[in-house]
């Protein structure tokens, strides 16, 4: 079994990429809501004091201001914990960014259950579902350092609004350096035909490790990093569901309205029928604990995913 190499936190790669971009582009503007430290943006602020705007603990204000800056030609990154950015400022996202079509880059940091034992106020398990229901917004959940860097570069040049969310713990590499990232085009990072894991964000690495474990047992798996939740890559989805004997979706999000239900809905409409399981956080009071405790509790770790796959094909 190949041991996956541990990279940096996606959060760190995000801030490094922003510095890289800002070096050659005076129009890059970061907006924070007392979130400079949490966003690892202190070095950015020191290097580009004229390209950072601090609004205080006021996330609605943050997104409204970001919309105004974007409308005026700035390449804006509005950065705040995903929980507050997408719940508190939902109406600003819907009206001032998406409906009005101003290309703000909404960056949800410490997403999913990254904040662990800080509790449900700090979890974002609703964001993909809520934002899928908003027109004119791309949604990206990068799996590793490579996907994070590429999605930030892509967002800077995208003429329409985008939401990108990631976690804060160091994460294993799942990509090779010469891979490519395209908006709305999933990456197949491991090939196999018995079971497919279609995963997003930090659950991709768990799925890849599950695939490696299953291979030892003679079960071959395809692992798809569905980094773009919207627009969903229905081509890769349909092709995967046709090629593999069973399909498991995995996401650090509530099962209601997330990646799994998006895939299920599409497959149902096209009449592709395949044994199917959605792994994510169920609709209940989330168990208290650290991020990996929560993953384990809800069957989102490699071992549990491998078990789920065996069950699905048995």
């Amino acid at each position: 079994m190949n041991k996956l190499e541990l990279g940096k936190a996606n959060l760190e790669v995000f801030s490094e990429t922003l510095i890289e971009l800002a070096k050659n582009d005076k129009d890059i503007v970061v907006v924070t809501s007392d979130s400079r430290g949490s966003g690892k943006l202190t070095p950015f602020g020191q290097q580009f004091p004229d390209q950072i705007v601090e609004v205080g603990i006021a996330e609605q204000n943050l997104v409204g201001i970001a919309a105004g800056l974007a409308a005026s030609g700035k390449k804006v990154f509005a950065v705040s914990p995903a929980c507050f950015l997408t719940a508190r400022s939902f109406e600003q996202i819907k009206n001032d960014v998406c409906y009005s079509d101003h290309p703000v880059n909404l960056i949800g940091i410490s997403a999913g259950v990254s904040y662990g034992a800080l509790g449900s106020t700090h979890h974002s398990l609703h964001d993909l579902a809520a934002l899928r229901a908003v027109n004119n917004l791309s949604i990206i959940v990068p799996a590793d350092n490579f996907e994070t860097r590429e999605s930030i570069r892509l967002a800077a040049e995208l003429p329409s609004p985008v939401y990108i969310r990631f976690g804060k713990r160091a994460i294993e590499h799942v990509h090779k350096p010469d891979d490519k990232l395209e908006l709305g085009k999933a990456n197949i990072i491991h090939e196999g035909g018995d079971v497919a894991f279609i995963a997003t964000g930090e659950t991709v690495v768990q799925s890849l490790m599950a695939a490696q474990q299953l291979e030892q047992k003679g079960v071959s798996c395809r692992v798809v990093s569905m980094h773009t939740i919207k627009p969903l890559d229905i081509e890769t989805l349909a092709q995967t569901a046709t090629k593999c004997k069973a399909l498991i979706t995995v996401e650090e999000h509530m099962v209601n309205g997330g990646l799994g239900e998006a895939c299920a809905g599409y497959l149902m409409l096209t009449g592709i029928c395949v044994p199917f399981k959605i792994v994510g956080i169920p609709d209940e009071y989330t168990v208290p604990g650290k991020q990996l405790d929560i993953f384990k509790h809800y069957g989102m770790t490699a071992e549990k995913l491998a078990d789920a796959a065996l069950q699905l094909i048995s």
Binding site: Y115, G116, A117, L118, G119, T121, H122, V287, P288, G289, K290, D293, H297
Partner: peptide, 11 residues
């Protein structure tokens, strides 16, 4: 405090 399954979370 802040352990798995404890209701004494960080808020």
């Amino acid at each position: 405090l802040c352990q798995y399954q404890s209701h004494y979370v960080g808020h």
